[in-house]
């Protein structure tokens, strides 16, 4: 290339333009973030933040966690405590049992995927399939298969008393009261304006039942963010609970999703039971007294994987809170800190 002697202004300008443009192009290429490293760059108002509710005041947590029991299940659905504090877990197409130290003691194969279970003091197992109940002996032999509850049925929980079986049917928003032979006695929790029953409201199938002291039936009413108690004839007794993201309330669109009655030894001499409740959305397990007042947090959201749904819980005779974690597929064991 021939170069002119005199420096032409245009030449200089062009050279500068080319240099600047090339440099700018290089800068732009280096500034590219095609891999999303820099995040969305959206302002605060565009970001959903529930982090503040995912932290629990440590002073409220009165429980500590022990070593969990791995269930070995792919899908873990329901948990119950049997004689000698044996832990029974329903999931996949089987029931697995562990002794109080977490050693596997039994495995019962089932024909259908179980949703829930309850175990009698003598070891008889009642397990809820989606639309019917099956009864198994302690040895794992099927004793009975009750007829289907109906096509819409989604059985989500079973609770037992000495002579009654309570089956929560989330599909029809009702608790079915059976005798031990499988005869339907009563339907509990249906809308009844005269008796002041607003009806069970569920959005996801998650009605849970528990029996207190062999006399009172506790039912979750997740769509109304409360728990309700009934006498066995279906008369409403008490209810408590309110919607709140705060630890004192039940969070989200429908909670609690599971309950258990705390054994008497834990409580002051009160005529009513204290309940352990489990929630989804902000997965947390709490203990509330008979007025619904928060007494203790067993495990806050930080103890569970985000998005955990489908906790089930129970409590054994020693007061250990056993939480079935469907994400970890394990039974998480919580004991009081001062024990």
């Amino acid at each position: 290339m021939k170069k002119r002697r005199g420096i032409s202004t245009t030449g200089v300008i062009i050279a500068v333009v080319i240099t600047v443009a090339t440099a700018a192009a290089v800068v732009v290429i280096l500034r590219f973030d095609p891999t999303g490293k820099g995040g969305s760059g959206l302002g605060e108002q565009f970001v959903y933040d529930s982090e503040q509710y995912r932290k629990t005041d440590p002073n409220l947590i009165h429980y500590k966690e022990l070593k969990p029991i791995e269930t070995g299940l792919k899908v873990a659905r329901g948990i119950a405590v049997g004689p000698d504090d044996a832990v029974y877990v329903a999931g996949d197409r089987k029931i697995v049992a562990f002794d109080r130290d977490g050693k596997s003691i039994a495995e019962i194969a089932l024909g259908d995927p179980p949703q829930c279970l309850a175990v009698e003091a003598d070891g008889t197992i009642y397990t809820g399939m989606i639309d019917h109940v099956e009864v198994y002996s302690k040895g794992g032999r099927r004793i009975a298969k009750w007829p289907s509850v109906g096509d819409d049925a989604i059985i989500t929980s079973i609770a037992l008393s000495d002579s009654d079986v309570f089956v929560a049917d989330s599909g029809n928003s009702v608790v079915l009261h059976y005798d031990k032979a499988g005869r339907l006695v009563n339907r509990i929790g249906q809308v009844d304006k005269e008796r002041g029953i607003p009806g069970l409201l569920v959005r996801k199938p998650c009605i849970d039942v528990a029996v207190e002291n062999g006399k009172v039936l506790w039912v979750t009413n997740p769509g109304r963010w409360r728990v309700e108690s009934y006498s066995f004839d279906g008369a409403p007794k008490r209810h408590w609970g309110r919607q709140s993201q705060e630890i004192e309330g039940f969070c989200g669109c429908c909670n609690p999703t599971c309950i258990a009655v705390l054994p008497r030894l834990r409580q002051a001499q009160s005529s009513h039971g204290w309940l352990i409740t489990g929630e989804k959305g902000l997965p947390r397990v709490k203990i509330c007294d008979e007025t619904g007042c928060l007494r203790s947090v067993v495990a806050g959201p930080e103890a569970f994987a985000k998005g955990t749904v489908g906790l089930d819980l129970t409590v054994d005779s020693r007061g250990r809170v056993l939480v079935l974690d469907p994400v970890a597929k394990a039974v998480r064991v919580f004991v009081k800190k001062d024990d």
Binding site: S40, L42, Y48, S50, R203, K204, G252, G281, G307
Partner: peptide, 16 residues
């Protein structure tokens, strides 16, 4: 709608 997904997070975490 700008597709920020804020409501998706809310409905996903606490709703259906």
């Amino acid at each position: 709608c700008i597709g920020c997904g804020k409501c998706v997070a809310g409905c996903g975490q606490f709703g259906m």
